[in-house]
Simulated assay, not measured.
Amino acid sequence: MIFFLAGTSDARELAVTLQKEGYPLIASVVTENAVKELEQVQIGAFAGRMDAEEMCTFITKKQAAAVVDASHPFAEEASKNAMEAAKRANVPYIRFERKEQNFAESPLITYVSSYEEAAERAADTKGTVMLTTGSKTLAVFTEKLLSNPDIRLICRMLPRKDNMEKCEHLGLPQKNIVAIQGPFTKAFDQALYEQYEVKCMVTKASGQRGSVDQKVEAAKELGIKTIVIERPDIQYQNRCSSFDEVIQQLKKQGIKGGAISGL
Rank of each mutant, 00 (worst) to 15 (best):
Y115F: 15
N33H: 15
I94W: 08
T132V: 01
Y93N: 02
S106D: 14
A85E: 13
M55R: 15
V68M: 11
F74T: 01
S113K: 12
A34P: 06
A78I: 07
E100V: 08
A119T: 03
A27R: 12
L138C: 06
T133G: 02
F74E: 00
K87F: 10
E97I: 00
A64T: 12
D51T: 14
A86C: 06
K62V: 03
A85R: 07
K126V: 11
K136L: 06
Y115V: 02
S114W: 05
V129C: 02
Q101K: 04
A27H: 11
G44S: 15
D124P: 08
G44C: 13
K36W: 09
A75H: 14
K126P: 07
H72W: 05
P92D: 08
T125M: 06
A123S: 15
F103W: 04
K80E: 10
I94D: 03
A104R: 10
A78S: 02
A27G: 13
V30S: 13
V67T: 09
S114E: 04
A89D: 06
C56N: 15
A66P: 12
G44V: 07
K87Y: 11
K87Q: 13
R49C: 03
T110R: 11
K99P: 09
E53N: 12
K80T: 03
K62T: 04
K87W: 10
V67C: 12
A65F: 13
L108E: 08
T125S: 09
K99R: 13
G44L: 14
A104V: 03
A118W: 07
F58T: 14
F46N: 06
K62I: 01
A122H: 07
V41D: 10
E97K: 01
V68C: 05
M83C: 06
S113L: 08
T57Y: 12
T125E: 08
F58W: 14
A66Y: 13
G48T: 04
M130C: 01
E77T: 10
E117H: 11
Q63W: 05
S106L: 07
F58R: 15
L131V: 05
S71I: 00
F96S: 00
G134C: 01
T60F: 15
K87H: 11
N102A: 11
G134S: 05
T133D: 06
A27K: 13
N90R: 09
F96M: 00
A65I: 02
F96K: 00
S135R: 09
R121T: 08
